[in-house]
């Protein structure tokens, strides 16, 4: 007997429906005051803790302080981690509440839905990054040689990467317990190998090769470039391009794994 094949429906992208989805996600956020407060304040507070931790640790003459190096990198890692968690839970909620199934019966294309999420949380991440960068450079004397706007831009790219990987991971999570555990699976290896804990040149060759294919590596490298060059470098733009490209690829993959018909 021939089974009816579950052909993926063509995805007719519609900027109008993507915007409608982004607007809806932002409205949901707006009703959740505590989440907004945490999103805006938490990274600054954690960065403050790091600042106090290293404040009195002497640095070798001629070298950048540890906080300047780690704090700057953290500006890219916070939005990545937070947005990964928030979106994987948000998508799981859509799935378990039945709203996802309902959305799939409307003219909304699957990629519209995911791009809408990316746009909404990208915007939230931009706000978060402006607050965190401002606090870091004024209160904690974080030294950035390049433009702080580039730091914000990289933070937003990292956030969108987190959103995209979170949406993709949620496709494989059947329960909240699984969704939460995808965070260490996806985030921690990238964090360990991104060059912050051990410079990439000092890693074993195979670890460096693994690090080469992990997107967070490029996010961190981009921030390090802004940290030491006054002008935006070609390496930095290439890194931002790689991070954004991987984010788009993950969104497309997430759309492809989102099945309209389920058993």
């Amino acid at each position: 007997m021939t089974a009816i094949l579950d052909r993926p429906a063509p995805t007719h992208l519609s900027p109008r429906l993507t915007a409608a989805t982004a607007g809806r996600v932002l409205r949901q956020l707006r009703h959740d005051h505590r989440t907004i407060a945490m999103m805006l304040v938490l990274p600054s507070a954690l960065l403050g803790l790091l600042y106090l931790l290293w404040k009195d640790v002497p640095t070798l003459p001629g070298q950048a302080g540890i906080f300047d190096r780690v704090g700057l990198t953290m500006l890219g890692i916070f939005p990545f981690v937070v947005m990964f968690l928030v979106t994987s839970i948000a998508m799981l909620r859509e799935r378990t509440s039945g709203t996802l199934e309902r959305l799939l019966t409307t003219p909304l294309a699957r990629l519209d839905l995911l791009l809408g999420y990316g746009a909404a949380f990208g915007l939230a991440a931009a706000l978060q990054a402006v607050v965190t960068v401002t606090v870091a450079t004024t209160l904690y004397d974080l030294d950035v040689t390049g433009s702080t706007w580039l730091v914000v831009l990289i933070a937003v790219a990292d956030a969108v990467l987190g959103v995209a990987l979170g949406l993709l991971a949620s496709a494989f999570a059947r329960s909240e317990f699984q969704a939460v555990q995808f965070m260490p699976v996806v985030v921690l290896p990238q964090f360990f190998l991104c060059g912050l804990l051990v410079p990439r040149e000092q890693m074993a060759g195979w670890l460096q090769a693994v690090s080469d294919v992990l997107p967070l590596t490029y996010a961190v490298e981009a921030l390090q470039e802004v940290g030491r060059s006054a002008e935006a470098t070609g390496t930095m733009w290439a890194d931002v391009g790689i991070v954004s490209g991987v984010a788009l690829l993950a969104l497309a993959l997430a759309a492809a794994t989102l099945r309209r018909r389920t058993a």
Partner: peptide
């Protein structure tokens, strides 16, 4: 399609829910 369990967004108002689905249907 109206599912058996209400499939709307609990963290939006009634009006916001209706306007969202209205937007999806044009």
């Amino acid at each position: 399609y109206v599912t058996q369990a209400p499939s709307v967004y609990p963290d939006l108002t009634v009006r916001e829910n209706a306007r969202h689905f209205a937007a999806l249907y044009g």
